[in-house]
Nucleic acid binder design. Structure first.
Lengths: 208, 208, 208, 208
DNA sequence: GATGAATGAGTGTTCATTCAT
DNA sequence: AATGAATGAACACTCATTCAT
């Protein structure tokens, strides 16, 4: 992750760097984004860049982390406290918060999604592993709690459920981002609900 | 795609090229794979490579095409003939066939999956568009037929259903490829069935 | 120059090769023309090409030679027999013949001109030297004869006169080729005469 | 053309780059000169080269521009002010200045000349067009002024006159560069005068 | 005689990274 | 703390030429 110096920078400059880099990564992916593009977009010198970050992968990881922190913060409940009554509503509220957020910060979503596709890049794998683990453990806690209270199916390995939920999430997000302009607000809201219901039907315990 | 000469090559050599390239692409993705790696892996000279293919994108497209042809061939029924009784069994049989295939050619799955992630690469987009369209139209035909006979939900845009089904497919495949060795044969078979059921629950018409 | 075998080929095929190659050389120059373009244009196999010619430079030299032979043949008089009365008319007649020829074989002119620009290409220099020498000796004979009979200035080295006449020739040819379509036939004929007069005024002995 | 950074370099280094590149271009032409040769000759790294120039064509254009700037600067009079008395003397003085310059920087002449031969290279055409236009307009202004005051023939299209004058110029220059060592200073000076007279006789209005 | 598959050094260009200032 | 000049290995791709058939 970035050198500690980075966080001593004026928050404004930090944000400008992360934002500029994020936009480039969102547009071209990790490999396709060149450092030259990034420093041009960011108004930071090459030297300064290496003063704050180890390398390109470090910057990427920082961007992804930043993008995901927002997601993590949208989980404002303790999974252990969920009950049969609050389980699905809490998930839906969380989803709502993320949708709103998506609306405002399109590139963060794009970069966030890249976390999952660039997991096979050997150059990135180790760097992103902790991040992935964090995200996974968050979801795992929720799903496990769901299983405990009989809301989530337990006939499949947790890892598979996680993979599937995430893939679905990403696919749906992507579709919404791309189709935003083709539907009315109300229609979009209805679709959001239905999409979520689709996920629910998939992971819900059969007997529930 | 490749020059006609390529198909005049001894099938053995064709296979060696496609296979070698496929492995490298599977490992590093389109951008990450370098032609130098590929020709080293493939035991073909640089000149020979360009004698048979237009460029790197051409080779990639050829690999993906090759991978998907198997998938397309596993659809051995006409969607129009499906009925309420045969719809889900046909899909399951198709899935079975693909699973078996996956088992034997792990890299093909990895490359096939890249078709969907590399759709945003401008260098690749036009090259892969026909392939994507073909795959999509195949699935669209099946889903539309399913809607006609009341087996598939029609409260969501077809494009969204397609995106979601594909994402799920890929995620499940990937998980199976990675977890192959951690489960017994029987357990795997059971999981396959359950996974398919998960898809079904997701896209099945609520009233069905 | 080409292997003797080449001249045993059916004249038709010989012509097709020289013509095809000539067109490509005329369009792209010696360096810019690739052998692949040429064999495509020529309908000869790569192997056959190297069966008849030593290398690319050999083919180029052959084309240029072919182009210049026509020029040499348009000199149908013996310079030694020229007199004060016949000197300039003979040169003008020769020029006429070349103009007519130019009209019919545009690429030959283009390739012929390249003889002079590619003289500094080390790869070509030795190959084209004899050709250049031949052309030069022809013109030298004419100019020397002109000096003998007092029609050509002798206050400048012969080599300089040759260089200047050739440059002028090429420039005028090129201008005519490019402007062919912008003037009427009559206007062109008048211009041709004036252009020749320009050359004459330049090299004519001051006292003549 | 080159990036602004280039001009911030120590003049010495700028000169070394332009000079090294110029020599290679002079020797092999634009196409024949390889970047590898150039950076070897120039003692600059490949990376540094691309840090200062867009591409090979950019470097070439820079060399040609540099070469021609000297020529343009040798025109130290306003064509509009020329009179019957000053017209030819001004041209001769200009020619003298250029000859002196040629003496010191042989490669510049060679590269300058390439401006005219490489005009058909599609890769170069657009890059060099402004330069060519500038040179042409300069000469055109002089010739038109000459026509106005009755010193230059007007029975030929201006473009043809320009082409012819330029060709002559180049041919004479080239001959002088090559023959520099074969004649005495005095002889050379005499020849220069005669050569210029040759040009004059060619373009001078017949009645003048 | 003739083919065309095969070669590999070469091309122009990009890039993450380093380091003197 | 910050700059930006400099690097050189790597990239995708081309080419004249060779040679087994």
């Amino acid at each position: 992750m970035p050198r500690p110096r980075f966080f001593k920078l004026e928050p404004d400059k930090q944000a400008r760097i992360i934002d500029g880099a994020g936009q480039v990564f969102a547009l071209h992916g990790y490999q396709g984004a060149s450092l030259n593009q990034i420093i041009a977009q960011t108004d930071i010198s090459k030297g300064a860049f290496y003063y704050y970050f180890d390398d390109k992968a470090d910057l990427f990881a920082t961007c992804v982390t930043h993008a995901l922190e927002e997601v993590f913060q949208s989980v404002d409940f303790d999974p252990q406290t969920l009950t049969v009554e609050t389980f699905w509503p809490a998930l839906m509220a969380m989803n709502d918060r993320m949708m709103t957020y998506t609306d405002d910060h399109p590139w963060l979503v794009a970069v966030g999604k890249q976390l999952y596709t660039s997991v096979d890049d050997p150059e990135l794998k180790d760097r992103l592993a902790p991040l992935l683990a964090h995200g996974r453990s968050l979801w795992a806690a929720i799903l496990v709690r769901g299983q405990e209270i009989g809301q989530v199916r337990n006939d499949l390995p947790l890892e598979l459920l996680l993979a599937v939920m995430n893939a679905l999430d990403v696919a749906i997000d992507r579709w919404f981002v791309e189709s935003w302009h083709d539907y009315s607000r109300e229609e979009l809201e209805r679709l959001t609900t239905v999409a979520l219901d689709m996920i629910r039907r998939m992971v819900e315990a059969p007997e529930a």
